[in-house]
């Protein structure tokens, strides 16, 4: 049975989205993205002089990747900055998809919920398909849906920390209260086991960058994440057992040999 990720009317086989930053080299970045199986990659825009060549390197890769591009607004702190950068992204990358970031705190790069909602409202009105990087606050998430976002990307933990799913209660609440909204865990994932756990919890996809790019072997780590996300999704679809407090034997107890002697011994009787 097809189990595709559906975002803004497009379907994807992969449920792993990856960033393109922090790799040891452009070649390792390309190889890692391929190993991840990702069909959606994040990018950005920065000031550049004509003499700088990084723009050309990433542009050449974009042309050949075949991936859905997801430009971000990383570093923006106000809706005005976001709108300008979003429009520049749309012109250059030729897509109205946008990973919306409005940073509210430099220390933990926490999204500014007020700026996020204001910017999302304006961007949706301008025709952007907005994927907001947000906190795990249910009310903020609802407001983002109200202004027209169709996908939400709550953080697992702050960007680049590798701390995994920091507040599972909030995340579980989001999943339960927004059952029909595509939810992508974005940021803070440090290990494939954490990505797997997010998928087991029912999240639709995972977006990460640092955990792959900063691994000793990024290509192998990308493959590890691909497998972990697939495994977690399959487990979610299969249906996890319920946790319980007391042990329960998995081997049948009926017709267990020696049981009379064991009970007698436990009662202090001579056998």
């Amino acid at each position: 049975m097809a189990d595709k990720l559906k975002l803004y009317g497009k379907e994807f086989h992969s449920r792993l989205l990856v960033g393109t930053a922090l790799y040891p080299s452009p070649a390792i970045m390309r190889e890692s993205v391929a190993a991840s199986g990702s069909e959606i990659i994040t990018l950005s825009l920065r000031r550049q002089s004509p003499a700088q060549q990084q723009g050309k390197i990433i542009w050449d890769y974009i042309q050949e990747s075949g991936c859905q591009l997801l430009p971000n607004t990383a570093g923006c702190k106000t809706p005005k900055e976001v709108i300008a950068l979003a429009e520049m992204s749309r012109e250059i990358f030729g897509t109205d998809w946008l990973k919306l970031e409005v940073i509210g705190d430099d220390y933990n790069l926490q999204p500014d919920p007020f700026g996020l909602i204001e910017a999302a409202r304006e961007l949706v009105q301008r025709g952007f398909k907005v994927l907001p990087y947000c906190t795990d606050d249910l009310v903020v998430c609802r407001k983002l849906l109200d202004v027209g976002c169709e996908v939400l990307m709550p953080w697992g933990s702050p960007i680049g920390t590798g701390r995994g799913l920091m507040n599972k209660y909030n995340l579980q609440t989001l999943r339960e209260r927004l059952p029909d909204t595509p939810l992508i865990i974005d940021a803070g994932i440090g290990a494939p086991s954490q990505a797997c756990e997010a998928m087991e919890m029912g999240f639709d996809a995972v977006l990460l960058n640092t955990a792959i790019a900063k691994a000793q072997n990024p290509v192998l780590m990308a493959e590890s994440f691909r497998l972990a996300v697939q495994s977690g999704r399959a487990a979610r679809n299969a249906g996890l057992m319920l946790k319980r407090q007391t042990a329960s034997p998995s081997t049948p107890t009926l017709d267990m040999p020696f049981w009379q002697q064991t009970i007698s011994a436990e009662n202090g009787e001579k056998v």
């Binding site: 994040t42 825009l45 920065r46 000031r47 550049q48 960058n209 640092t210």
Partner: peptide, 10 residues
Amino acid sequence: LDIVAPVVGG
């Protein structure tokens, strides 16, 4: 003037 070009991003 701000003149920007594509870069890698997360």
